[in-house]
C-alpha cells in the first residue's frame, strides 16, 4: 500500500473533478438518480444486504445494482456494461451469483444480498480476496469485486455438482482449470488477469498451493 495518502479512490475523485471541468460528458452511462418521474409511485423494498436489513423507497425502474450503489452507497459492486455482458456487477442473491444490473431491486423484496463488502473487510479478508492479492488476480481492479463474488459462487456450484459446458460426464462434476475458465466466462477482465484469477480460485479450492 502507498505510505502517503495517495489512494486509488483519491485519484479517481481527482480525475472526476478534472473531467467535470471539461466539456459535458455524455450521461449515457451515468447512473440515473432515483427520482421517480411524474406518476411513477415509489415502491417500498426491504432487503438484507450483507446481513443488515435495509428499507428503501424506490422507483420500480431501479436495478439492484443502482440500489446498492446509489441508495446504499455500497460502491464496491461495479457498473461496467449495464447489460449483463461483463459481469462487473455480479453479486450473490439468496446464495446464487447474478448480474445485479439485469434485475430490478423491487423483484428482490425480502431477499438477502451479499456484495464484495459483505464477503470480507480489509481487516478480515475472505479467503478468495486474500488469494486474489497473493496471486495478483487483478490489475486495474474494476472487474475484481464481480470476479471475486463470481469465483466464490463458482466453487459452491462445483461442490453442488452443477454441470457446465466443459463437464465431460454430466454426472461427475470435478474441479479443473477448464471448468473454472468456462464458469468464469461471464466475468470479463480488460487487463486479462485470467491466469492469476484461476490460480487464486484453485488456491481457495485447496487444489494447488502457490
Amino acid at each position: 500500500m502507498p505510505s502517503d495518502h495517495v489512494t486509488r479512490r483519491g485519484i479517481l475523485r481527482g480525475a472526476a473533478l478534472a473531467a467535470a471541468a471539461g466539456p459535458a460528458l455524455s450521461p449515457a452511462h451515468a447512473a440515473e438518480p432515483a427520482k421517480a418521474s411524474k406518476g411513477t409511485p415509489m415502491t417500498p423494498v426491504e432487503l438484507t444486504v450483507n446481513g443488515r436489513e435495509v428499507h428503501l423507497q424506490l422507483d420500480p425502474r431501479t436495478s439492484l445494482l443502482d440500489a446498492l450503489r446509489e441508495h446504499l452507497h455500497l460502491t464496491g459492486t461495479k457498473k461496467g456494461c449495464d447489460h449483463g455482458q461483463c459481469g462487473a456487477c455480479t453479486v450473490i442473491v439468496e446464495g446464487r451469483r447474478i448480474n445485479s444490473c439485469l434485475t430490478l431491486a423491487v423483484m428482490h423484496d425480502g431477499e438477502s444480498v451479499t456484495t464484495i463488502e459483505g464477503l470480507g473487510t480489509p481487516d478480515r479478508l475472505h479467503p478468495m480476496q486474500k488469494a486474489f492479492i497473493v496471486h495478483d488476480g487483478y490489475q486495474c481492479g474494476y472487474c475484481t469485486p464481480g470476479q471475486i463474488c463470481s469465483a466464490v459462487a463458482v466453487l459452491d456450484e462445483i461442490k453442488a455438482g452443477v454441470p457446465s459446458h466443459v463437464t465431460p460426464d454430466l454426472d461427475e462434476v470435478a474441479l479443473s482449470d477448464a471448468e473454472l475458465r468456462e464458469r468464469m466466462s461471464g466475468n470479463i477482465c480488460r487487463c486479462a488477469a485470467y491466469p492469476n484469477i484461476i490460480a487464486a480460485m484453485k488456491d481457495v479450492a485447496g487444489e494447488a498451493k502457490a
Binding site: L102, T103, V154, P163, S164, R183, G186, N187
Partner: peptide
C-alpha cells in the same frame, strides 16, 4: 441429466453462469 442429456448440454452451452441462475 440422465434421460434428456441433450437438454442439459444445450442449457449449459448458453449464456453465462450468472444469467443461467436467473
Amino acid at each position: 441429466r440422465r434421460d434428456y442429456a441433450v437438454l442439459s448440454r444445450a442449457l449449459v452451452s448458453g449464456a453465462s453462469g450468472q444469467l443461467r441462475n436467473k
